[in-house]
Amino acid sequence: MTEELFVSGRHIEHIDPYLNLWGGPIAIYLFLGGLAAAILIFANFFFLMGKADKYPMTAKVSTLIPPVIISFGLILLVYDLHHKLYFWQLLLNFRIESPMSWGAWTLTFIMIPAILWPLIYMRDIIDYLSERNPACRLLGLLNWIDKMANKFGIVRFFIGLAKTYQKPMAYITIVLSLILGVYTGILLSAFNARPLWNTAILGPLFLTSGVSTGAALLMWMSKNHDEKRLFSKLDLILISVEIFLIIHLFMGMKAGPLVQYDTAMLFLGGPYTSIFWVGVMGLGLVFPAILEILELNHYKIPSWLPALFILSGGLAFRYIMVYAGQFSSYNIL
């Protein structure tokens, strides 16, 4: 048995006794990134399938969300930097090996279609909302945005340009959204010092989880029966894939080298066992999946219920991954 301890008085904030440099803001940022990517993927996909008018909630109204949550995520990200006033260095450099650099640039580029998309449909969105809920408080703000957008020639020009090239823009947006969704996982998987994160499955896992939370949100927001059912079915498939990927993650780790085996044991008997298997796997995936199966079989279940569980499960999953990942290490003092 070897026991090691610091004898020169080392207790550095966020580093000792174990790393906890990244916390809530990063977890929320990863969650919002995945959610925004999912909404953009669905909206642009439905547009390309020619179903924008059939499913107006997904293809038009929901696109109000991504620019707001991406901006909020970016604010969180800058807030979490320790050398905040130098954040612009991110946008002066592109480093192909650094996932964080990829993320910063993807978020910058994706903001352009994310802002243009709701502007293209602003009239439709206002009509849709005022038809269903004339007292909606958002309407005043949307009307003001619409008025402002029409007031400035340059904005009108860009909206016109976006309308003309809407199809190629949709393809590009889907690719950018996929990069954004997968990046939330790859950001973490690039750190070989953190065995929990250092697995290639994390990118697909975070993408699936993000798209699943997006589908849940759209299922919740939609007022159209067909649209609700479609997202309910889609979400069931995504949840199944996610469960498979999670099991695969731990299988791979248990069969891996010692550091990864030890990391898997954090979740299979260690301190993260109950919170992960009950909180994320149980309440965040299996329980809402059962609710959705019941709902598809015509049981009366309000759609916000499974959606809420999936969304909070997705957030909890990212919290746990961010904290447990930093806890996992090569055990060098």
């Binding site: 580093i15 000792d16 320790h82 130098y86 260095q89 750190f191 090569y330």
Partner: peptide, 23 residues
């Protein structure tokens, strides 16, 4: 040039880096 994101701290298996009080 450092934005203080901490990616390098997280990627070091030896915990050799830290956030200077100046950021």
């Amino acid at each position: 040039e450092c934005i203080g994101c901490g990616a390098c701290i997280v990627s070091c298996p030896y915990n050799a880096r830290f956030v200077h009080p100046e950021g």
